[in-house]
Amino acid sequence: MDRLNAMAMLVKVTETGSFSAASKALGVPLATLSRKVSDLEKQLGARLLVRTTRKLSLTEAGIHYVAASKRILEQVEEAERQAGGEYTQPKGELVITAPQMFGRLHVLPVISEFLANYPEIRIRLLLADHNLDLIEEHVDMAVRIGRLPDSTMVATQVGSVRVITCVSPALLSNIPALSHPEDLLELPCVTQDTNRNATTWRFKQPGSSNSLELAIQARLSVTNSDAALCAAIRQVGITRLLHYQAADAIAKGQVQIILPEYEPSPLPIHLLHASRGIMPLKMRSFLDFAAPRLKDSVSALQSPPSG
């Protein structure tokens, strides 16, 4: 068991990139962590890590050993789950990730209902607008919005969401009539971006498979959808959002959709999980429970395009 513990510590050091970061992540004193890895190297008779003041890197032997350690630790974890009954009854912890606003509005209500029905399951919900690595972060299931790259992951589509352009009615009344996306190039816009380059907005040409891409020069650039929506409501400019992000503001008349005939194709929404043989019952139970409810929740947003 000490050997497995040392393996886990070594893997965490390589994942975090430093002994100090791994020490904080594991809650283990730095001196203990360093000694365990050194003892492991002595037992193996091979150097696994090259430590300098600036960086940490693996030797060739270390690369192979860490890869093997990950496989072994995954097999041990799988065996423990089987022994703990996760394959015979739905229980244990589930780690789920979702985009922040979608998770709060659509995933959290489903999780609340699920927990009321499955008292022996605990859930850790990670809300993040960047995609977490399911394997590296030990995530059981993810909600992903957008086209999925080819991978070994298993995906269940629960719907799709429109990509809309919206504006405050007050601002709309003070600008020239909009008839084409290129009209936006002359108007104040609010974009979501983390760098200083122009943001590209893609539109679909009506009656054609061709698309139109516009490099939008932002009057205001923000880093999340909440801020973009708030700025649009305050008449700072026109913004581009996913429909669910603006649905409440649209219903209240704070913003309205423009140029709906030029909307790009809706983005798919999937529940995603790693393919690891037999699925633990806690995951199967959640997938079977959540998928139809998310479909109902998402389909309620799919109103006909309107301006």
Rank of each mutant, 00 (worst) to 15 (best):
V158D: 02
T53M: 09
T52Q: 12
K252P: 00
A251P: 00
I123H: 06
L229Q: 03
C189D: 01
F286W: 13
T16Q: 09
P260H: 04
L56E: 12
D140H: 15
L56M: 08
S275D: 15
R147S: 12
V11N: 09
G92D: 03
K295P: 01
A67R: 15
P268C: 09
P90R: 02
Q192H: 02
A142V: 04
S168F: 04
H270G: 05
Y262V: 02
L171E: 10
F102W: 09
P149R: 06
A128P: 01
A231K: 00
D150T: 12
A274G: 12
L44A: 07
I238N: 00
A83L: 08
Q235M: 02
K42C: 05
L44G: 03
A21V: 10
T239W: 00
R104E: 13
N174L: 11
I238K: 00
S285C: 10
Q157D: 14
T52C: 13
C189K: 00
A246Y: 01
R104N: 04
D140L: 09
I278R: 14
R54K: 11
L148K: 03
F289K: 10
D140W: 04
V76P: 03
L127F: 10
V107Q: 01
P268R: 02
A246R: 00
V28Y: 04
A21N: 14
R35K: 13
A215Y: 05
S297T: 13
D150E: 14
G146L: 02
N195D: 15
E186V: 03
A300N: 06
A227N: 04
L44H: 08
V37M: 11
T199Q: 07
A8I: 12
L172E: 13
G62R: 09
G253L: 10
V139N: 04
P176Q: 05
T200G: 00
L241F: 02
S34F: 07
I121P: 06
A67H: 12
D39E: 15
D193Q: 12
E120W: 02
A116T: 05
L171N: 11
L33M: 08
P264L: 09
R124W: 03
G207D: 06
L148P: 08
S173E: 14
V11K: 08
H273V: 06
R147W: 02
A300P: 01
E263S: 12
